[in-house]
Nucleic acid binder design. Structure first.
Lengths: 157, 157
DNA sequence: GCAGTCGCGCAATATTCTTGCGCCTGGGCC
DNA sequence: GGCCCAGGCGCAAGAATATTGCGCGACTGC
């Protein structure tokens, strides 16, 4: 499949908001029969547009009161060290997101931890323990206005 | 409800990975009968631990090739301007996350856009158009190692 | 030891998912 | 203009799943 219409967009839009909506209700919301709707959803999954479904948990209620952004600098760059660093970082449960970035740092990591003590353990024992990481600069989220918001669909063709 | 056990954790863990798993299968995965499992899930939803369910879309396939982090500085701070800025920022579809942060900037925004042209429009027409925003520093994600990863559950009591 | 509470599994019912099928529509081609 | 084909739809039936009431057993606190 290569072209998507406004119905597909409506489906994606709805599923981004409520990923567990019954197909019957989704169908009604986008003005299709359940069978046609389900076929569209399956096609979107097949195409990889829908990568999966996730339950969205509440950080505060989980006891994760601290969201921290950590910029990391790497000493000697090489394909090998980069791969190693990435695999270690993404294996840390507290690491919720991780990007290779432009600018003065090399990685931007988002971590969710319970408190400052947990943050310290994460930073010292896990992140700074990675060889080749020479610097870390942390920024704390004082308040989260929006997180994991829906992706825009306007550009979809 | 106030105390959670390892079965609750297992349920949350599973639902974070596959938010649309059939209750029958979830029940089997956590070694419960379907009815008991469903009651647990409902309780977790009621408690707000499960905030909702979302379809996870693929940015690249949506045509969102650029993830940008934008640090914003605010000129004169006041409760009112802060509230205004937040509401405008979270209303922008491209803004996928937004935090009030510590450090030299005031806001950290994550935006998903199609390309540099779209980024420019977002920055100039939408973000810098907000009064009281005096500076913006953008960092581009060269590659995304991990995004919207599962939250850690180890600290849950 | 006993009553109360909580959470479980079972089973029946309601709801939903899923798939085959025939129909309609629109585009390309004589 | 008319024909043929492909794609997508709705309908309907059967399969699977969700949902709820109910009784039972285990643990708690007295």
């Amino acid at each position: 499949m290569a072209a998507y219409d406004s119905t597909d967009r409506a489906i994606l839009d709805r599923l981004q908001t409520d990923g567990r909506i019954a197909n019957v209700d989704l169908a009604e919301a986008v003005a299709l029969s359940p069978s046609a709707c389900l076929r569209r959803v399956r096609a979107l999954e097949q195409d990889g547009l829908i990568a999966g479904y996730r339950a969205e948990l509440d950080r505060a209620r989980l006891g994760l009161d601290l969201t921290v952004f950590i910029e990391l600098k790497v000493g000697q760059h090489s394909r090998k060290t980069a791969a190693r660093i990435e695999s270690v970082l993404s294996g840390i449960p507290e690491v919720v997101a991780c990007h290779v970035i432009s600018g003065s740092a090399d990685f931007l990591v988002e971590a969710a931890v319970a408190n400052l003590a947990a943050y310290e353990r994460l930073l010292i024992d896990q992140i700074l323990a990675i060889p080749a990481i020479v610097d870390a600069r942390s920024t704390f989220a004082i308040r989260t206005v929006k997180t994991r918001g829906p992706l825009p669909l306007a550009q979809l063709r």
